[in-house]
């Protein structure tokens, strides 16, 4: 089926990633984060988004990429997946594009250091732009985090 979807495009380092727009609640500028102790390192803390307390995770940290300083371009993308509201800290977010589902290919094993299970696929847009589509349920899967932690520990 040739179905068009709208995708929010954001950047981590030089790579471009996409999240379907209907999973995104809002995109916010960086705001004060209250640190939450005794939890995973990539969970940066919680923010107050118009009266709701929402946990924020650094997507770089979640994917094991070196974390970067926050800049003017840094954004927090609030997503709502499986009734969980979570904020993702990303380097920048400044594009919404239409994408045809057919143009999304199965991802190779590892893309930009991210395991394939976190990805829905890779879409080729324009001449030489590659867009990596995230599988949000997997990214937020907590069972996997527990294994990750125990490996590190």
């Amino acid at each position: 089926m040739a179905e068009d979807i709208k995708v929010i495009v954001f950047k981590l380092g030089s790579e471009e990633y996409g999240i379907e727009v209907d999973k995104v609640q809002t995109i916010e500028r960086m705001m004060p984060i209250t640190r939450v102790p005794k939890t995973y390192a990539f969970i940066k803390g919680v923010i107050n988004l118009r009266g709701v307390v929402i946990p924020v995770i650094d997507l770089r940290g979640r994917f094991g990429i070196q974390e970067a300083e926050h800049t003017d371009q840094t954004r927090v993308i609030i997503v709502n997946v499986n009734e969980m509201e979570v904020g993702f800290i990303v380097d920048s977010a400044n594009d919404v594009i239409d994408l045809n589902r057919e143009s999304i290919d199965t991802p190779p094993e590892v893309v930009g250091g991210i395991k394939a299970k976190y990805l829905d696929g890779v879409a080729k847009i324009g001449e030489d732009r590659l867009l990596i589509m995230l599988n949000l349920s997997e990214v937020l899967n907590k069972n996997e985090i527990v294994q990750l932690e125990s490996l590190e520990g």
């Binding site: 209250t34 939450v36 005794k38 969970i43 919680v46 107050n48 307390v53 946990p55 509201e85």
Partner: peptide, 27 residues
């Protein structure tokens, strides 16, 4: 009292969060 959101696992020693007058979250 607000909860920390569904994503956060139970945090030891923290029972929830609240929003202060200046808009910041306090645990």
């Amino acid at each position: 009292i607000k909860n920390l959101g569904k994503y956060l696992p139970e945090v030891q020693g923290i029972s929830g969060a609240t929003i202060l007058g200046d808009g910041q979250v306090a645990l």
